[in-house]
């Protein structure tokens, strides 16, 4: 048994190393947040005779015009969420005050859950600085893009959004615990699947983050599932999406109408 578990530990290490290598390769090939591109570029990514995907891309083109690709490093949902929302608010500035108080509310709730204030403040302050910069008339979209392409700032945002997600899951443990297959507690789930960087986001993460911050997100699913149309799920259910993300298995990009 000892050998078996140690073997598991070693395999785990192997996996981590492999992930590390892949991350480096991905990093060299793609910005954290890419430029806006035409949806057409997707057409070339799949084989011409791949009927399911080609049909779904045509459908996607009917519904959306542009997309922004994000780096596939496991943080893409959080990064795409943060960038897409703030980019939208850079134009509209209609929701920022509400958003800011929601973030501050999250911080209080995390502090009361026992998160050490000094690590939290660090992430919180960086994030709020960015939110406030979006509220200024002088901030350009190029500057916001630069912020999200700066590894330090960008990762601080991702990290804080992860902690907020984790905090929301823990304070709504009763509701979410039925979705945690294979984990004995919400805390364990969060420390394994939510808080560590590079862990991919699932329905649960999206549901929690959108609820915690009151930001409605439409996720357009493009996979091998049935039908020749793409389906959009809105989080929280029944709300009016402020931003749209494209989901392909294991990855999220940003969509524009």
């Amino acid at each position: 048994m000892a050998d078996f578990m140690s073997e598991v530990a070693r395999l785990d290490e192997e996996t981590l190393k492999q992930i590390d290598r892949i991350q480096k390769e991905v990093a060299e090939s793609c910005e954290f947040i890419g430029d806006q591109e035409d949806i057409d570029i997707l057409t070339k990514q799949y084989l011409q005779d791949d009927e399911v995907y080609q049909a779904k891309i045509s459908d996607l083109k009917r519904k959306y015009k542009k997309l922004r690709r994000t780096r596939g490093d496991g943080n893409c949902f959080f990064r795409a969420f943060g960038y897409a929302y703030l980019e939208k608010q850079l134009e509209e500035k209609t929701d920022l005050d509400r958003f800011k108080s929601a973030v501050i509310q999250c911080r209080s709730s995390l502090l009361s859950m026992g998160y050490p204030s000094f690590t939290l403040e660090d992430f919180h302050d960086t994030f709020i600085d960015i939110v406030e910069s979006v509220n200024k008339a002088s901030t350009s979209s190029a500057e916001l893009l630069q912020t999200f392409r700066d590894q330090g700032l960008s990762d601080y945002c991702v990290c804080y959004l992860r902690i907020i997600t984790s905090g929301y899951l823990q304070s709504n443990a009763e509701f979410y615990s039925s979705f945690m297959d294979g984990y004995s507690t919400i805390k364990e789930y969060c420390s394994t699947e939510v808080e560590p960087m590079y862990k991919e986001a699932d329905h649960i993460h999206i549901s929690a983050l959108t609820s915690a911050l009151g930001v409605s997100v439409g996720v357009v699913y493009m996979d091998r599932g049935e039908g020749l149309e793409v389906n959009e799920h809105v989080f929280p259910e029944g709300s009016d999406p402020m931003i749209h993300l494209l989901y392909r298995p294991g990855h999220y990009d940003i969509l524009y109408k």
Binding site: F123, S191, P196
Partner: peptide
């Protein structure tokens, strides 16, 4: 260096 919950920046 062990299976289980990994490092998080928090």
């Amino acid at each position: 260096t062990w299976p289980g919950p990994q490092w998080a920046p928090a």
